[in-house]
């Protein structure tokens, strides 16, 4: 082995790497906001009493969960233009990732709804609360608390998955890696440093989610 590692070759690109981390962070947060909304709506549809709604939501969830994200992105970015819908790489990435996250969120949210004992709903009604009040004061908080751990780890997985959108040349941290690679030809150094850059983001995400949990859920007494 006569390879000499030169991590120093990356030093001039510190700004690009930091900017890439910021872009990944932005893309992740935007996707989480949109994907979570999509997921909640899909979960509402999947548990609704109208059969067509349930059916549409199931087809959506099963299709997305059983095909790779990369192929989904290819369909959105390369496939949709032939139907006349032309998107930039960034838009395609955001749409593809949000649709993907929505399907996973749907399943998590759906699992959280039955976690609340029926007797609590009955207790709420017997205290004269309206349906909305029961949902707001009894169901929502407890359901969120129950699904919070799986939801937050799904969000971390999503952040890591954003690296895949570099395949459709959307700009984020992994795209920065291929840019630096093409300038320096220090492939191993570039990709190992960038990969560890994601580890920093993962830790950042986990700490933030733990802090949110502590402030929102842990400090309040059990209800």
């Amino acid at each position: 082995m006569d390879y000499r590692f030169r991590f120093g070759a990356l030093a001039p690109y510190t700004d690009e790497i930091l900017e890439g981390m910021l872009l990944t962070l932005q893309l992740s947060v935007l996707t989480i906001l949109i994907g979570f909304t999509v997921g909640v709506v899909a979960a509402a549809m999947r548990t609704s009493s109208a059969k067509p709604l349930r059916w549409i939501a199931s087809v959506y969830v099963e299709t997305i969960r059983n095909t790779p994200l990369l192929v989904q992105l290819f369909i959105v970015f390369f496939g949709l233009p032939s139907l006349g819908l032309r998107l930039t790489a960034g838009e395609a990435a955001l749409i593809g990732l949000s649709i993907n996250l929505g399907a996973y969120t749907c399943e998590i949210v759906r699992a959280g709804i039955p976690s609340i004992p029926k007797s609590q709903l009955e207790a709420g009604y017997s205290l004269g609360l309206s349906r909305l009040q029961v949902f707001r004061h009894v169901v929502l908080f407890q359901a969120l608390k129950a699904i919070y751990p799986s939801l937050s780890s799904q969000f971390v997985l999503l952040m890591l998955a954003t690296s895949v959108v570099s395949a459709i040349s959307a700009n984020e941290l992994f795209h920065v890696a291929s840019f630096i690679d093409s300038r320096t030809f220090r492939s191993f150094e570039v990709y190992s440093v960038i990969t560890l850059g994601y580890l920093v983001l993962t830790i950042l995400f986990r700490v933030t989610f733990a802090a949110i949990y502590w402030f929102v859920f842990a400090r309040r007494p059990a209800r």
Partner: peptide
Amino acid sequence: QGTPLLGQLFVFFFGLSI
């Protein structure tokens, strides 16, 4: 679990040749 699979793939793709 804290790093993207794509990154691991590239690291091994270039690392094994080293």
